[in-house]
Write a protein that binds this DNA or RNA. Structure first.
Lengths: 208, 208
DNA sequence: ATATGCTTGAAACATTCGTTTCAAGCATAT
DNA sequence: ATATGCTTGAAACGAATGTTTCAAGCATAT
Protein backbone atom coordinates (compact mmCIF):
# COMPACT_ATOMS: atom_id res chain seq x y z
CA UNK A 1 0.00 0.00 0.00
CA UNK A 2 1.49 3.26 -1.10
CA UNK A 3 0.64 6.13 1.15
CA UNK A 4 1.26 9.51 -0.40
CA UNK A 5 -0.56 9.32 -3.75
CA UNK A 6 -3.36 7.03 -2.67
CA UNK A 7 -4.31 8.60 0.61
CA UNK A 8 -3.71 12.02 -0.84
CA UNK A 9 -6.36 11.81 -3.50
CA UNK A 10 -8.77 10.15 -1.12
CA UNK A 11 -8.35 12.79 1.53
CA UNK A 12 -8.18 15.56 -1.05
CA UNK A 13 -11.48 14.29 -2.32
CA UNK A 14 -12.89 14.44 1.20
CA UNK A 15 -11.61 17.95 1.82
CA UNK A 16 -12.98 19.19 -1.47
CA UNK A 17 -16.28 17.49 -0.78
CA UNK A 18 -16.61 19.28 2.56
CA UNK A 19 -16.11 22.58 0.81
CA UNK A 20 -18.54 21.92 -2.02
CA UNK A 21 -21.25 20.30 0.08
CA UNK A 22 -21.12 23.17 2.56
CA UNK A 23 -21.18 25.71 -0.21
CA UNK A 24 -23.72 24.28 -2.62
CA UNK A 25 -25.63 21.69 -0.64
CA UNK A 26 -25.87 18.04 -1.52
CA UNK A 27 -28.20 18.29 -4.48
CA UNK A 28 -26.45 21.19 -6.15
CA UNK A 29 -22.99 19.82 -5.54
CA UNK A 30 -21.55 17.87 -8.44
CA UNK A 31 -18.94 15.18 -8.30
CA UNK A 32 -17.19 16.83 -11.21
CA UNK A 33 -16.80 20.02 -9.19
CA UNK A 34 -15.48 18.07 -6.24
CA UNK A 35 -13.06 16.07 -8.33
CA UNK A 36 -11.95 19.22 -10.08
CA UNK A 37 -10.99 20.90 -6.81
CA UNK A 38 -9.30 17.76 -5.61
CA UNK A 39 -7.42 17.50 -8.93
CA UNK A 40 -8.74 14.00 -9.25
CA UNK A 41 -10.52 12.08 -11.95
CA UNK A 42 -14.31 11.91 -12.10
CA UNK A 43 -14.17 8.20 -11.39
CA UNK A 44 -12.24 8.77 -8.19
CA UNK A 45 -15.35 9.44 -6.12
CA UNK A 46 -16.99 6.17 -7.01
CA UNK A 47 -13.75 4.30 -6.63
CA UNK A 48 -12.88 5.57 -3.17
CA UNK A 49 -16.33 6.16 -1.71
CA UNK A 50 -18.65 4.05 -3.82
CA UNK A 51 -20.99 6.84 -4.75
CA UNK A 52 -21.85 10.46 -4.18
CA UNK A 53 -23.96 9.43 -1.21
CA UNK A 54 -21.07 7.45 0.17
CA UNK A 55 -18.85 10.48 -0.11
CA UNK A 56 -21.44 12.58 1.69
CA UNK A 57 -21.65 10.03 4.46
CA UNK A 58 -17.86 10.10 4.73
CA UNK A 59 -17.99 13.89 4.97
CA UNK A 60 -20.49 13.70 7.80
CA UNK A 61 -18.39 11.12 9.58
CA UNK A 62 -15.40 13.42 9.18
CA UNK A 63 -16.92 16.64 10.48
CA UNK A 64 -19.21 14.99 13.03
CA UNK A 65 -16.87 12.39 14.50
CA UNK A 66 -18.41 9.66 16.59
CA UNK A 67 -16.19 10.17 19.60
CA UNK A 68 -17.22 13.75 20.06
CA UNK A 69 -18.15 13.52 23.69
CA UNK A 70 -16.80 16.82 24.77
CA UNK A 71 -19.51 17.63 27.25
CA UNK A 72 -17.24 16.83 30.15
CA UNK A 73 -15.41 20.08 29.53
CA UNK A 74 -17.49 22.14 31.86
CA UNK A 75 -16.27 21.92 35.41
CA UNK A 76 -19.09 20.60 37.53
CA UNK A 77 -18.26 22.58 40.65
CA UNK A 78 -19.59 25.80 39.15
CA UNK A 79 -23.03 27.14 39.85
CA UNK A 80 -25.64 26.16 37.27
CA UNK A 81 -25.79 29.76 36.10
CA UNK A 82 -22.08 29.84 35.46
CA UNK A 83 -22.29 26.47 33.74
CA UNK A 84 -25.00 27.88 31.51
CA UNK A 85 -22.69 30.74 30.64
CA UNK A 86 -19.92 28.32 29.83
CA UNK A 87 -22.28 26.27 27.71
CA UNK A 88 -23.34 29.31 25.74
CA UNK A 89 -19.78 30.46 25.35
CA UNK A 90 -18.65 27.06 24.14
CA UNK A 91 -21.44 26.77 21.62
CA UNK A 92 -20.98 30.33 20.41
CA UNK A 93 -17.25 30.01 19.92
CA UNK A 94 -17.83 26.73 18.17
CA UNK A 95 -20.32 28.28 15.79
CA UNK A 96 -18.55 31.54 15.09
CA UNK A 97 -14.94 30.48 15.43
CA UNK A 98 -13.04 31.72 12.45
CA UNK A 99 -9.98 29.59 13.01
CA UNK A 100 -10.82 26.51 11.01
CA UNK A 101 -12.94 26.57 7.94
CA UNK A 102 -14.12 23.09 8.76
CA UNK A 103 -16.12 24.34 11.72
CA UNK A 104 -17.99 26.91 9.70
CA UNK A 105 -18.61 24.35 7.00
CA UNK A 106 -19.85 21.91 9.58
CA UNK A 107 -22.57 24.30 10.65
CA UNK A 108 -23.39 25.16 7.08
CA UNK A 109 -23.95 21.49 6.36
CA UNK A 110 -25.86 21.14 9.61
CA UNK A 111 -28.09 24.04 8.62
CA UNK A 112 -28.75 22.57 5.19
CA UNK A 113 -29.52 19.26 6.80
CA UNK A 114 -32.08 20.90 9.07
CA UNK A 115 -33.77 22.78 6.24
CA UNK A 116 -33.90 19.70 4.05
CA UNK A 117 -33.30 16.59 6.14
CA UNK A 118 -31.78 13.60 4.48
CA UNK A 119 -31.43 10.19 6.03
CA UNK A 120 -28.23 11.32 7.69
CA UNK A 121 -29.81 13.85 10.02
CA UNK A 122 -30.34 11.13 12.59
CA UNK A 123 -26.62 10.50 12.63
CA UNK A 124 -25.77 14.17 13.08
CA UNK A 125 -28.31 14.66 15.83
CA UNK A 126 -27.11 11.58 17.64
CA UNK A 127 -23.42 12.45 17.60
CA UNK A 128 -23.47 16.21 17.53
CA UNK A 129 -26.62 17.55 19.11
CA UNK A 130 -27.78 14.95 21.58
CA UNK A 131 -24.81 15.22 24.00
CA UNK A 132 -25.00 18.98 24.14
CA UNK A 133 -28.78 18.93 24.43
CA UNK A 134 -28.51 16.55 27.37
CA UNK A 135 -25.95 18.77 29.02
CA UNK A 136 -28.09 21.86 28.55
CA UNK A 137 -31.15 20.09 29.84
CA UNK A 138 -29.19 19.10 32.92
CA UNK A 139 -28.13 22.67 33.57
CA UNK A 140 -31.59 24.06 33.02
CA UNK A 141 -33.07 21.47 35.31
CA UNK A 142 -30.94 22.80 38.12
CA UNK A 143 -31.74 26.41 37.37
CA UNK A 144 -35.46 25.88 37.02
CA UNK A 145 -35.64 23.64 40.05
CA UNK A 146 -37.10 20.18 40.49
CA UNK A 147 -40.67 21.34 40.27
CA UNK A 148 -40.43 22.64 36.74
CA UNK A 149 -42.66 20.66 34.39
CA UNK A 150 -41.07 18.77 31.55
CA UNK A 151 -42.85 20.96 29.06
CA UNK A 152 -41.17 24.06 30.42
CA UNK A 153 -37.82 22.33 30.47
CA UNK A 154 -38.17 21.23 26.87
CA UNK A 155 -39.32 24.62 25.71
CA UNK A 156 -36.54 26.48 27.50
CA UNK A 157 -33.94 24.09 26.19
CA UNK A 158 -35.18 24.63 22.67
CA UNK A 159 -35.26 28.37 23.27
CA UNK A 160 -31.62 28.65 24.20
CA UNK A 161 -30.64 26.52 21.26
CA UNK A 162 -32.75 28.84 19.17
CA UNK A 163 -30.96 31.94 20.40
CA UNK A 164 -27.67 30.46 19.22
CA UNK A 165 -28.71 28.69 16.06
CA UNK A 166 -30.87 31.42 14.65
CA UNK A 167 -27.99 33.77 14.73
CA UNK A 168 -26.48 31.33 12.29
CA UNK A 169 -29.66 30.86 10.31
CA UNK A 170 -30.80 34.40 9.88
CA UNK A 171 -27.39 35.77 9.13
CA UNK A 172 -28.33 36.38 5.48
CA UNK A 173 -31.51 38.10 6.64
CA UNK A 174 -29.78 40.27 9.16
CA UNK A 175 -27.36 41.25 6.46
CA UNK A 176 -30.33 42.59 4.54
CA UNK A 177 -32.23 44.12 7.44
CA UNK A 178 -29.50 45.76 9.46
CA UNK A 179 -26.22 45.61 7.55
CA UNK A 180 -24.58 47.83 10.11
CA UNK A 181 -25.21 45.62 13.08
CA UNK A 182 -22.27 44.55 15.25
CA UNK A 183 -20.67 41.43 13.86
CA UNK A 184 -21.17 38.50 16.16
CA UNK A 185 -17.80 37.00 15.44
CA UNK A 186 -15.96 40.18 16.28
CA UNK A 187 -17.69 40.96 19.52
CA UNK A 188 -18.20 37.37 20.47
CA UNK A 189 -18.01 38.12 24.16
CA UNK A 190 -20.69 40.75 23.69
CA UNK A 191 -22.91 38.24 21.97
CA UNK A 192 -22.32 35.61 24.63
CA UNK A 193 -23.04 38.09 27.39
CA UNK A 194 -26.27 39.13 25.77
CA UNK A 195 -27.54 35.63 25.16
CA UNK A 196 -26.62 34.66 28.69
CA UNK A 197 -28.45 37.58 30.26
CA UNK A 198 -31.46 37.20 28.02
CA UNK A 199 -31.65 33.48 28.65
CA UNK A 200 -31.27 33.81 32.38
CA UNK A 201 -33.98 36.46 32.44
CA UNK A 202 -36.25 34.20 30.47
CA UNK A 203 -35.55 31.26 32.70
CA UNK A 204 -36.26 33.24 35.86
CA UNK A 205 -39.51 34.41 34.33
CA UNK A 206 -40.49 30.78 33.83
CA UNK A 207 -39.64 30.00 37.42
CA UNK A 208 -41.53 32.68 39.26
CA UNK B 1 -59.00 35.53 -24.32
CA UNK B 2 -60.58 32.41 -22.99
CA UNK B 3 -60.66 32.20 -19.26
CA UNK B 4 -61.30 28.77 -17.92
CA UNK B 5 -58.77 26.59 -19.72
CA UNK B 6 -56.01 29.13 -20.08
CA UNK B 7 -56.01 30.60 -16.62
CA UNK B 8 -56.68 27.20 -15.20
CA UNK B 9 -53.49 25.63 -16.43
CA UNK B 10 -51.50 28.72 -15.56
CA UNK B 11 -52.83 28.85 -12.02
CA UNK B 12 -52.73 25.07 -11.69
CA UNK B 13 -49.08 25.30 -12.64
CA UNK B 14 -48.56 27.91 -9.96
CA UNK B 15 -50.34 25.89 -7.30
CA UNK B 16 -48.41 22.77 -8.17
CA UNK B 17 -45.17 24.73 -8.18
CA UNK B 18 -45.82 26.01 -4.66
CA UNK B 19 -46.27 22.46 -3.50
CA UNK B 20 -43.22 21.06 -5.22
CA UNK B 21 -40.88 23.95 -4.40
CA UNK B 22 -41.90 23.82 -0.75
CA UNK B 23 -41.50 20.08 -0.66
CA UNK B 24 -38.32 19.52 -2.65
CA UNK B 25 -36.63 22.89 -2.80
CA UNK B 26 -35.79 24.74 -5.97
CA UNK B 27 -32.90 22.62 -7.13
CA UNK B 28 -34.52 19.27 -6.51
CA UNK B 29 -37.86 20.30 -7.93
CA UNK B 30 -38.37 19.36 -11.56
CA UNK B 31 -40.63 21.03 -14.06
CA UNK B 32 -41.87 17.63 -15.12
CA UNK B 33 -43.04 16.92 -11.59
CA UNK B 34 -44.77 20.29 -11.43
CA UNK B 35 -46.41 19.86 -14.80
CA UNK B 36 -47.44 16.36 -13.89
CA UNK B 37 -49.30 17.52 -10.80
CA UNK B 38 -50.86 20.37 -12.74
CA UNK B 39 -51.88 17.94 -15.49
CA UNK B 40 -50.13 20.19 -17.94
CA UNK B 41 -47.59 19.68 -20.65
CA UNK B 42 -43.89 20.05 -20.00
CA UNK B 43 -43.76 23.04 -22.29
CA UNK B 44 -46.41 24.84 -20.26
CA UNK B 45 -43.95 26.16 -17.71
CA UNK B 46 -41.79 27.86 -20.28
CA UNK B 47 -44.78 29.10 -22.17
CA UNK B 48 -46.55 30.71 -19.23
CA UNK B 49 -43.62 31.69 -17.06
CA UNK B 50 -40.67 31.79 -19.40
CA UNK B 51 -38.50 29.44 -17.41
CA UNK B 52 -38.21 27.50 -14.19
CA UNK B 53 -36.71 30.56 -12.53
CA UNK B 54 -39.59 32.64 -13.78
CA UNK B 55 -42.04 30.19 -12.28
CA UNK B 56 -40.19 30.34 -8.97
CA UNK B 57 -40.34 34.12 -9.01
CA UNK B 58 -44.06 33.90 -9.69
CA UNK B 59 -44.42 31.53 -6.75
CA UNK B 60 -42.65 33.98 -4.48
CA UNK B 61 -44.79 36.83 -5.72
CA UNK B 62 -47.85 34.70 -5.02
CA UNK B 63 -47.06 33.61 -1.47
CA UNK B 64 -45.26 36.82 -0.49
CA UNK B 65 -47.57 39.42 -2.01
CA UNK B 66 -46.28 42.94 -2.26
CA UNK B 67 -49.19 44.56 -0.50
CA UNK B 68 -48.74 42.57 2.64
CA UNK B 69 -48.74 45.45 5.05
CA UNK B 70 -50.66 43.83 7.77
CA UNK B 71 -48.75 45.34 10.65
CA UNK B 72 -51.57 47.72 11.37
CA UNK B 73 -53.53 44.86 12.86
CA UNK B 74 -52.33 45.39 16.38
CA UNK B 75 -54.35 47.94 18.22
CA UNK B 76 -52.03 50.73 19.31
CA UNK B 77 -53.80 51.54 22.55
CA UNK B 78 -52.51 48.43 24.24
CA UNK B 79 -49.50 48.40 26.50
CA UNK B 80 -46.23 47.48 24.79
CA UNK B 81 -46.19 44.19 26.67
CA UNK B 82 -49.63 43.29 25.40
CA UNK B 83 -48.63 44.34 21.92
CA UNK B 84 -45.64 42.05 22.17
CA UNK B 85 -47.95 39.25 23.11
CA UNK B 86 -50.16 40.00 20.16
CA UNK B 87 -47.16 40.11 17.89
CA UNK B 88 -45.99 36.72 19.09
CA UNK B 89 -49.45 35.26 18.81
CA UNK B 90 -49.88 36.59 15.29
CA UNK B 91 -46.55 35.26 14.14
CA UNK B 92 -47.09 31.91 15.82
CA UNK B 93 -50.52 31.38 14.38
CA UNK B 94 -49.18 32.40 11.00
CA UNK B 95 -46.37 29.89 11.22
CA UNK B 96 -48.26 26.97 12.71
CA UNK B 97 -51.70 27.56 11.31
CA UNK B 98 -52.98 24.37 9.81
CA UNK B 99 -55.85 25.91 7.92
CA UNK B 100 -54.23 26.69 4.61
CA UNK B 101 -51.44 24.62 3.19
CA UNK B 102 -50.11 27.68 1.47
CA UNK B 103 -49.01 29.21 4.76
CA UNK B 104 -47.00 26.18 5.79
CA UNK B 105 -45.48 26.01 2.34
CA UNK B 106 -44.62 29.66 2.50
CA UNK B 107 -42.52 29.10 5.60
CA UNK B 108 -40.97 26.00 4.12
CA UNK B 109 -39.85 28.00 1.12
CA UNK B 110 -38.74 30.81 3.41
CA UNK B 111 -36.68 28.37 5.42
CA UNK B 112 -35.06 26.93 2.33
CA UNK B 113 -34.33 30.41 1.12
CA UNK B 114 -32.59 31.23 4.38
CA UNK B 115 -30.49 28.10 4.37
CA UNK B 116 -29.50 28.57 0.75
CA UNK B 117 -30.24 32.13 -0.31
CA UNK B 118 -30.99 32.78 -3.93
CA UNK B 119 -31.31 36.17 -5.52
CA UNK B 120 -34.91 36.30 -4.41
CA UNK B 121 -34.23 36.46 -0.69
CA UNK B 122 -34.01 40.22 -0.89
CA UNK B 123 -37.54 40.32 -2.22
CA UNK B 124 -38.88 38.07 0.52
CA UNK B 125 -37.15 39.99 3.26
CA UNK B 126 -38.39 43.28 1.92
CA UNK B 127 -42.03 42.30 1.62
CA UNK B 128 -42.41 39.70 4.31
CA UNK B 129 -39.90 40.25 7.07
CA UNK B 130 -39.12 43.94 7.04
CA UNK B 131 -42.59 45.19 8.08
CA UNK B 132 -42.86 42.75 10.94
CA UNK B 133 -39.29 43.40 12.02
CA UNK B 134 -40.00 47.12 12.14
CA UNK B 135 -43.11 46.54 14.16
CA UNK B 136 -41.29 44.32 16.62
CA UNK B 137 -38.46 46.79 16.93
CA UNK B 138 -40.99 49.48 17.70
CA UNK B 139 -42.58 47.42 20.46
CA UNK B 140 -39.24 46.44 21.96
CA UNK B 141 -38.09 50.03 21.93
CA UNK B 142 -40.98 50.94 24.18
CA UNK B 143 -40.43 48.01 26.50
CA UNK B 144 -36.70 48.52 26.82
CA UNK B 145 -37.01 52.25 27.20
CA UNK B 146 -35.35 55.09 25.32
CA UNK B 147 -31.98 54.53 26.91
CA UNK B 148 -31.49 51.05 25.52
CA UNK B 149 -28.55 50.95 23.13
CA UNK B 150 -29.18 50.00 19.52
CA UNK B 151 -27.10 46.90 19.95
CA UNK B 152 -29.38 45.59 22.67
CA UNK B 153 -32.43 46.45 20.62
CA UNK B 154 -31.09 44.63 17.58
CA UNK B 155 -30.08 41.60 19.59
CA UNK B 156 -33.40 41.35 21.40
CA UNK B 157 -35.32 41.74 18.19
CA UNK B 158 -33.34 38.94 16.62
CA UNK B 159 -33.80 36.85 19.74
CA UNK B 160 -37.56 36.94 19.66
CA UNK B 161 -37.57 36.16 15.97
CA UNK B 162 -35.28 33.29 16.84
CA UNK B 163 -37.64 31.88 19.44
CA UNK B 164 -40.35 31.67 16.81
CA UNK B 165 -38.39 30.70 13.74
CA UNK B 166 -36.27 28.07 15.34
CA UNK B 167 -39.30 26.21 16.41
CA UNK B 168 -39.91 25.92 12.70
CA UNK B 169 -36.31 25.16 11.87
CA UNK B 170 -35.47 22.57 14.44
CA UNK B 171 -38.73 20.70 14.12
CA UNK B 172 -37.00 17.73 12.47
CA UNK B 173 -34.39 17.77 15.22
CA UNK B 174 -36.90 17.94 18.01
CA UNK B 175 -38.68 15.02 16.41
CA UNK B 176 -35.50 13.06 16.88
CA UNK B 177 -34.53 14.34 20.31
CA UNK B 178 -37.85 14.40 22.12
CA UNK B 179 -40.51 12.75 19.99
CA UNK B 180 -42.99 12.93 22.85
CA UNK B 181 -42.88 16.67 23.28
CA UNK B 182 -46.13 18.64 23.17
CA UNK B 183 -47.00 19.58 19.62
CA UNK B 184 -46.75 23.30 19.09
CA UNK B 185 -49.64 23.44 16.70
CA UNK B 186 -51.98 21.68 19.07
CA UNK B 187 -51.22 23.69 22.14
CA UNK B 188 -50.53 26.89 20.29
CA UNK B 189 -51.70 29.02 23.17
CA UNK B 190 -49.29 27.16 25.41
CA UNK B 191 -46.46 27.88 23.03
CA UNK B 192 -47.39 31.53 22.71
CA UNK B 193 -47.63 31.92 26.45
CA UNK B 194 -44.25 30.40 26.95
CA UNK B 195 -42.49 32.46 24.32
CA UNK B 196 -44.13 35.59 25.66
CA UNK B 197 -43.09 34.93 29.25
CA UNK B 198 -39.60 33.89 28.26
CA UNK B 199 -39.15 36.89 26.03
CA UNK B 200 -40.46 39.34 28.57
CA UNK B 201 -38.17 37.87 31.18
CA UNK B 202 -35.25 38.22 28.84
CA UNK B 203 -36.16 41.77 27.98
CA UNK B 204 -36.45 42.78 31.61
CA UNK B 205 -33.08 41.23 32.28
CA UNK B 206 -31.62 43.44 29.57
CA UNK B 207 -33.24 46.46 31.10
CA UNK B 208 -32.15 46.17 34.68
C1' DA C 1 -67.95 30.61 -42.74
C1' DT C 2 -63.42 32.12 -42.57
C1' DA C 3 -59.34 33.89 -40.62
C1' DT C 4 -56.51 35.21 -36.64
C1' DG C 5 -54.15 34.64 -32.35
C1' DC C 6 -53.43 32.23 -28.27
C1' DT C 7 -52.82 27.68 -26.17
C1' DT C 8 -51.79 22.88 -25.99
C1' DG C 9 -49.55 18.35 -27.01
C1' DA C 10 -45.95 15.13 -28.44
C1' DA C 11 -41.46 14.86 -29.59
C1' DA C 12 -36.94 16.02 -29.65
C1' DC C 13 -33.32 19.21 -28.37
C1' DA C 14 -28.67 19.92 -26.05
C1' DT C 15 -26.70 19.67 -21.71
C1' DT C 16 -25.50 17.85 -17.40
C1' DC C 17 -25.78 14.52 -14.02
C1' DG C 18 -23.85 10.11 -11.46
C1' DT C 19 -21.85 6.14 -12.78
C1' DT C 20 -19.30 2.53 -15.42
C1' DT C 21 -15.84 0.63 -18.32
C1' DC C 22 -11.32 -0.65 -19.42
C1' DA C 23 -6.74 0.02 -20.58
C1' DA C 24 -2.50 2.14 -18.79
C1' DG C 25 0.41 3.22 -14.86
C1' DC C 26 2.83 2.20 -10.78
C1' DA C 27 4.43 0.22 -6.51
C1' DT C 28 5.38 -3.84 -4.11
C1' DA C 29 6.32 -8.82 -3.50
C1' DT C 30 8.27 -12.86 -5.27
C1' DA D 1 13.01 -9.42 -13.89
C1' DT D 2 8.46 -10.78 -13.58
C1' DA D 3 3.96 -10.95 -11.85
C1' DT D 4 0.26 -9.16 -8.88
C1' DG D 5 -2.91 -5.89 -7.00
C1' DC D 6 -4.25 -1.32 -6.34
C1' DT D 7 -4.92 3.23 -8.43
C1' DT D 8 -5.51 6.50 -12.08
C1' DG D 9 -7.06 8.55 -16.57
C1' DA D 10 -9.89 9.23 -20.68
C1' DA D 11 -13.95 8.09 -22.61
C1' DA D 12 -18.42 6.77 -22.81
C1' DC D 13 -22.81 5.27 -20.79
C1' DG D 14 -27.79 5.83 -19.63
C1' DA D 15 -30.82 8.63 -17.34
C1' DA D 16 -32.71 13.00 -16.22
C1' DT D 17 -32.70 17.82 -16.59
C1' DG D 18 -34.52 22.58 -18.62
C1' DT D 19 -35.76 24.13 -22.86
C1' DT D 20 -37.27 24.42 -27.79
C1' DT D 21 -39.79 23.24 -31.87
C1' DC D 22 -43.78 22.86 -34.56
C1' DA D 23 -48.02 21.09 -35.89
C1' DA D 24 -52.74 20.62 -34.20
C1' DG D 25 -56.57 22.52 -31.55
C1' DC D 26 -59.75 25.91 -30.25
C1' DA D 27 -61.91 30.17 -29.15
C1' DT D 28 -63.01 34.65 -30.72
C1' DA D 29 -63.59 38.36 -34.16
C1' DT D 30 -64.66 39.67 -38.64
Amino acid sequence: MNDSPDVNTKSALLAAAIQVFADKGFDSATVRDICGRAKANVAAVNYHYGSKDGLYAAVLAEIFPTGEERHAQITPDLSPEERLREFIRGLASDIFERGSDTIAQRWAIFLREMAKPSGNLDYIVQHHVQPRADELRCILSEILGPNAPDTTLAYCSANIWALMLDHLLIQPILDRLTPDRPAADNGLDLFVDHVFRFSLGGLKAMKG
